[in-house]
Amino acid sequence: MPRETFQRELDQLVEEVVELGREVESSLGTMVEALQGQDGEIAKREIGVDSRFKERGAEIDEECMVLQARQAPVARDLRLVYTVQAVTNHLVRAGTLCEHICHAIVETGGADQDSDLSATLSEMARGARSLFGEGLDVFESRDIDRARDLEAADDKVDLLYSEAMNLVVNPNKEESGSPEWRVRAALMVHYLERIADHGVDVGGRTVFLVTGERMESAMRQYRERRIDSDED
C-alpha cells in the first residue's frame, strides 16, 4: 500500500491517544476507589497527573500539526487527525477534572459528610468512569454501534447529577456534613458530570471519524438504515 510511512504515523498517533486515555481511565479508577473509601491517601496518588496528561496532550497535538504540514491529509486521514486532536482534548480535560476531585478528597479528609450525598457521589463516579472507558473503547475499536449506548448511559449519570444537586440544596438536617465538604461535594458532582460528557463526546467524535457525519445526524441515518435492512 502506498504511503506506508504516513499510515504508520497515523497508527502510532492512535496508539498514543488510546494509551493516554487508558492512563486517564486508570486515574479515574483510583479516584473512584478514593471517593468510595473517603481515602485521602489513595487520592494523593493522583495529585500531579494533570500536568503529565497535559504534556502528553501537547505532544500529540504537535504530532498532528507536523502530520498535517508534511502529509496534507484529506478524507478519512483528515478526519482521523481532526478526531485525534479533539479526542485528546477530551481525555486531557477528563484527567484534569479527575485531579480536581482527588484534590477535593484530600482537602476534605476527616470532614463531616452527608452519607446519602456521599453514596450518590460514589455511584456517579462509577458511572462516569465506566462511561469514559466505554467512550474510549468505541474510539479504539471504531465500533460506532456502541456509541449509541453512551447517550443512554449518560442519561443515568445526569439523573444522578440531579439527585446529588437536590441533596446539596436540601440537606438532611441530622447529617448534612460540614459546609466546606458540601461545597466541595457540589463541585465534585459537576466534575463527574463533565467527565461522563467527555466520554460521550469521545464516542461522538468516533462516529464522525467513521461516517463523516456529526453524531446526531449519523445516528439518525444509521437507525433509518437499520429499519430498512430489517425489512429486507
Binding site: 504511503r3 504516513f6 483528515l78 463523516g212
Partner: peptide, 20 residues
C-alpha cells in the same frame, strides 16, 4: 465533500494517496 468524506471507497483511496 470529496476531500472530507467521499461516498465511495475508491475515491477515498485515491484522494488519500492509498491507490494501488
Amino acid at each position: 465533500k470529496i476531500f472530507s468524506s467521499p461516498n465511495r471507497k475508491e475515491t477515498e483511496d485515491y484522494v488519500t494517496g492509498r491507490f494501488g
